[in-house]
Simulated scan of single mutants.
Amino acid sequence: MLQVTPGGLTFLLVAGLVAGAVNAVAGGGSLLVFPALLAVGLPPLNANVTNSIAQWPGYLGNVAGQRRELVGQGRRIVLTSAVAVVGAAVGCVLLLLLPQSVFDAVVPILVLLASVVMALGPWLKRKIGSPEEGAGDRMGVLLPAVFLAAVYGGYFGGALGVILISTLSLLAHDRLVRLNALKGLLSLVVATVTVLVFSLRAPVDWLAVALLAPTTLVGGFLGARVARRLPENVLRWCVVLLGVAVGIWLLVEQ
Score class of each variant (00 low, 15 high):
Leu170Met: 14
Ala47Phe: 05
Val117His: 00
Val197Asp: 10
Val40Phe: 06
Arg75Ile: 07
Leu79Ile: 08
Pro108Thr: 07
Gly16Trp: 00
Ala54Glu: 01
Gly154Lys: 04
Leu241Glu: 08
Ala172Glu: 11
Leu168Glu: 06
Arg138Gln: 12
Leu97Trp: 08
Leu170Thr: 08
Gly153Phe: 01
Gln55Cys: 14
Gly29Trp: 03
Pro203Tyr: 08
Gly219Met: 05
Leu70Met: 07
Leu230Ala: 08
Leu9Val: 09
Phe221Pro: 02
Glu69Cys: 04
Gly29Asn: 00
Val218Gln: 00
Leu13Ala: 07
Arg68Cys: 05
Gly140Thr: 01
Leu170Lys: 12
Arg228Tyr: 10
Arg201Phe: 15
Gly219His: 08
Arg175Asp: 12
Val18Met: 01
Ser199Leu: 10
Ala208Asp: 03
Gly153Trp: 00
Arg175Tyr: 05
Leu217Trp: 11
Ala64Pro: 01
Gly220His: 07
Lys183Leu: 06
Ala21Tyr: 04
Pro122Thr: 01
Ala64Met: 15
Val116Thr: 11
Leu31Trp: 02
Gly61Glu: 04
Leu37Ser: 07
Pro122Leu: 15
Asp104Val: 09
Ile165Asp: 09
Leu142Trp: 06
Leu95Val: 07
Met139Pro: 04
Phe103Glu: 06
Tyr152Leu: 10
Phe103Asn: 05
Arg236Lys: 12
Ala245Glu: 11
Ile77Asn: 01
Pro203Thr: 02
Lys125Asn: 12
Gly28Leu: 03
Ala88Thr: 02
Glu132His: 11
Ala82His: 07
Gly154Met: 01
Gly20Asp: 05
Asn48Trp: 03
Gln100Asn: 13
Leu95Asn: 13
Phe198Trp: 13
Gly247His: 12
Val234Tyr: 13
Met118His: 12
Leu110Pro: 09
Gly140Asp: 06
Ala210Leu: 14
Asp174Thr: 01
Ala159Leu: 10
Leu60Gln: 07
Gln100Met: 08
Leu188Trp: 11
Ala105Phe: 13
Leu143Ser: 00
Val106Glu: 09
Ala227Ser: 12
Ala181His: 05
Leu185Arg: 03
Leu12Val: 00
Val151Gly: 00
Ala145Thr: 14
Ile163His: 10
Gly72Ile: 04
Val4Ser: 07
Leu120Met: 13
Asn62Glu: 02
Leu70Pro: 02
Thr167Leu: 12
Val33Thr: 15
Gly161Pro: 05
Leu185Ser: 07
Ser81Thr: 13
Gly247Cys: 12
